[in-house]
Amino acid sequence: MSTLFYLSSLVAIVATLMVITRYHPIHALLYLVVSFLAVAMIFLSLGAPFVAVLEVIIYAGAIMVLFIFVVMMLNLDKDTALQEKQWLRPRVWVGPALLTLVLLLEIGVLLVRGDLPALQLAVVTPRQVALSLYGEYLIAVELAGFLLMAGIVGAAHIGKHKKESLHRFLREETDAHEASAGDAREVHTGDGEGIPEKERKTWQL
């Protein structure tokens, strides 16, 4: 099983590397699916079959579908890829990459120094997980439910295709502007009928 672990780890790392270096969003997402599948394999090798299945279903399935859906809706095609190519210059990525490399080294040193014992793997069955979830983590599960609900409501609200309005104050401003422009036009064009005397005076001022 350790072979499975190393192999799938390799696949996961390489696929993830591909994800963050692709220019085209669809390519990146496909590599991301590969990465998720590889991580699912790692879970399996670690003796967590339930989580491995969830990884495939939710991450590689549902979430990826969401991403691809958005990419298709926004019609991100070759232009985006071209732009990505322009954006992703060595000047841009060398610095962060070096920083993260240093961080990786430090984590590595910490891990080696920790001198952790070998992992005696044992399968943790879905039953155990379920008992734990609906036993001690019941409230956390409820909270996760709330979170998801909030996510749905938030996504539905934000995703509504609204007019170009950044902020309610800004909108009021533009509204007011439009309204006054309309009124002014009315005064100029119309002969003043329908506008009270006092109001007309104000406009003229």
């Binding site: 920083l99 240093v102 961080l103 910490l110």
Partner: peptide, 9 residues
């Protein structure tokens, strides 16, 4: 990231 690096260091 810098903060994490600092703490880990």
């Amino acid at each position: 990231l810098m903060g994490i690096l600092f703490i880990l260091t």
